[in-house]
Design a protein around this nucleic acid. Sequence first.
DNA 1: AGTGCGACCCGAACGC
DNA 2: TGCGTTCGGGTCGCAC
Length: 275
Amino acid sequence: MPEIAEVETVRQTLKSQILNKKIKDVKILYPKIIENNTEEFKTILKENQFMDIKRRGKWLIFELKDHFLLSHLRMEGKFFLKDRNAPIEKHEHIIFTFYDDTDLRYHDTRKFGRMEIIKKEELKTNKHIQKQGFEPGEKDLTSAYLLDEFREKNVAIKTLLLDQTIISGLGNIYANEILFASKINPFKKGSQITKKEAEALVKNSQKIIKRAIELGGTTIKSYTSSLGVTGRFQQELKVHKKEGMPCVICKAKIKKEKINGRSTYFCPKCQRVNV
DNA sequence: AGTGCGACCCGAACGC
DNA sequence: TGCGTTCGGGTCGCAC
């Protein structure tokens, strides 16, 4: 699933492929993905060009002349670059055709992804963008900040790591891995998190996301990023999808349980409730 | 305000 | 084998 490292990989890959190419036409085959009026969406894009691609958390931000195109891949959104004559595949929902006869195609099996075009001055106040917390690696993501955010929260730390308003960009895979690296039980309540644990979370989120980006993200299940780029971080997963396998530290069997409806993998020994 | 949960989707995995 | 059912997963919006 695309989390921050996968989205960053998509951003870098796309940036090297589509910048400053003039858009001839846009086709919307499944309108629910677009949060704007579809005619308005097309009108803004035609004859326009992507001048830069930025990112905030899991949101891709394509810079146009006077607008930004925001794109969230959710579970399985992918971008592919193809020849315009290539047959349209089943899950290709949005097609941007450039004047050089290539297409940028948005492919999304589950149709969960979303796109929205906004005026440039609306970026900071956009409802999606403005609520993003700090990203792993940003210097404002400190243990003091986390302790303050967790202080009054009576929910599992695992759930809090997935809250984009606190830390921006983490999904289920990296939340599981960061908790394992930090030796924190995923069920532990936010208010019970100690200073030491908060420091470990800052350090490990930074380390793991940095490493995942270096490896091009995690390819798991059906998810691969654009243009056939395959992530290699899955080779370094320690607990995610490792139910029943021996812990790399202590050999105890990795457990799988649900927290807030999400699969949570952890080592019952290294991540004991009271350490 | 904080918290929990269904809805959105559909292919894969599972159960019989 | 083949069919029906369940699961997963990020985010939103609603209910409490």
